[in-house]
């Protein structure tokens, strides 16, 4: 089905393996580019909503939903095919990987926290004509968001580590 859609959209068939390989490279590269452009468009749309209309428009909501669904589909596919898995050759290697995961989890949680606060502020600003959240609500949101993100990220990444020496 996907091949037919590609042929119909770009009028290229990918008749043999070289063409298919090149086509896949081009499409995967452009998909990542469009993914970020979509996020850029989504944030631009939300900011414009905030400044001009003070409520979230249907167009922005559609962009948010598309970006989220796209992100979820890609992540599910990556996980389904085991591409997040890391193999540890021995106990020493395992400890090294765990230390790296700890660092990555802290770094990603900080980034997610900043992004989450930015998103929260943006939505609050956009909705300010109708409602403005209290400091307490903001703190509760941030604690829950950061806490859930940190724990799930850290646990998920540790679970992806395979102890290769136990696999006989």
């Amino acid at each position: 089905m996907m091949e037919r859609l590609i042929r119909w959209t770009f009028e290229v068939s990918g008749r043999d393996e070289y063409q298919k390989a090149e086509l896949n490279k081009i499409l995967s590269g452009s998909a990542v580019l469009v993914y970020w452009l979509l996020y850029l468009g989504m944030f631009a749309s939300l900011i414009i909503d905030g400044f001009w209309t003070h409520y979230v428009t249907a167009g922005s909501m559609i962009l948010v939903i598309i970006a989220l669904v796209w992100g979820i589909i890609i992540n599910v596919q990556i996980r389904k095919h085991g591409l997040y898995q890391i193999e540890a050759a021995n106990e020493e290697d395992l400890q090294k990987i765990y230390r790296r995961i700890n660092f990555q989890a802290v770094r990603d949680t900080i980034i997610a926290g900043i992004s989450g606060y930015a998103g929260w502020s943006l939505v609050s600003f956009a909705m300010s004509a109708q409602y403005w959240p209290t400091i307490r609500e903001t703190v509760v949101f941030m604690v829950v968001f950061v806490g859930v993100y940190a724990v799930t990220t850290w646990r998920y990444r540790r679970r992806q580590v395979i102890k290769a020496w136990e696999d006989n």
Binding site: E17, Y18, Q19
Partner: peptide, 22 residues
Amino acid sequence: VGVTRQTVNMIENNNYNPSLDL
């Protein structure tokens, strides 16, 4: 071998690594 001329050309010029099957 059931591919396009372009593929043979790319392989001969070392611009593409063919699959084991090919």
